[in-house]
Amino acid sequence: MSELRWHPLLKEWVITATHRQDRTFLPPKDYCPLCPTKPGAFPTEVPAEDYEIVVFENKFPSLQYPAPEEAVEGSELYMVRPAAGVCEVVLYSSRHESTLAAESEETIRNLIEVWTDRYNELGSKDYVDYVFIFENKGKEIGVTITHPHGQIYAYPFVPPMILRELDASREHHENTGRCLMCDIIGEEKRDGRRIVCENGSFLAAVPFYARYPYEVHIFSKAHKGSLPEFTDQERWDLAKILKQMLLKYDNLWGMSLPYMMVLHQNPTNGERYDYYHFHIEFYPPYRTKEKLKYLAGSESGAGVFINDTLAEEKAAELREIEPK
């Protein structure tokens, strides 16, 4: 059973997906469903002895097409919609012990091409308004399978966080004639203290408004709204800065740092969003090597983040770390 239920107070959709309760939970290495299928061994999700990058539809999807019948009837106040969409799993490597940080720049460059292909293909479906590419890494984030992988949710609506960014970007553009994100990049460059690293096409910073201690945003220096707009050189530069940033994270405390990585780009609902600007956001859940940052009362109940650190200090810390 799966459906979209309208939250009338927050004016946003909640996805119910009760079948996901039965999904695979931290299987032993020899029974990883994302590894290649070895001769004589149990069949995994990938019926091949090896692979480079693989994408497949999630066995336990929150959204699917055609969508299953709703479990309940809606009303004028409590609206219900079919949970139509697509949930995909993106396998970065056939090596179970790998991570995105451990992969080569070439593999990350290839992954960017796969992301672009999925954005185009899923975004072209008439029931998909937004293609959301992300990775949850680490048990602390709730990852149920440790094999290196990311996910894609193709939503039948534009998600609320993206809507807020779009609204802010449109308002700024109407008031100033400029792109909000381009102005943010300008502000970060003028100040300089929050920049972690950069190359010809991208800039990574702990932004002024960071909500997590080690939150980093990677901004495209050129005003571009989505992955298909990037040139070959920009894709290489994105792969390089991603690799650099991930190595810095892993070298921060000498451990494979858990994080959420999310790509924010244009919706695919057929409307124009010339004022929006591509970027990637990282939210690592740790505030020190031993302490987690919890989304507690203020964050979950009031939507107010409390960051116990200064972005300027955390950026300096990350800037000093060698990306080796």
Binding site: E45, V46, P47, A48, Y51, E52, I53, V54, V55, F56, E57, K59, E106, R109, N110, E113, V114, D117, D232, W236
Partner: peptide, 30 residues
């Protein structure tokens, strides 16, 4: 980039993305 789509259990789609040849070409460009 080469794409190969196949069907897997539960009427789902799986796509193999192969780059071996492309990567060598890109490496020269890089």
């Amino acid at each position: 980039m080469k794409k190969e789509k196949i069907g897997i259990s539960g009427e789902r789609t799986l796509i193999y993305y192969n780059f071996s040849k492309k990567t060598k070409e890109s490496e020269e460009k890089k």
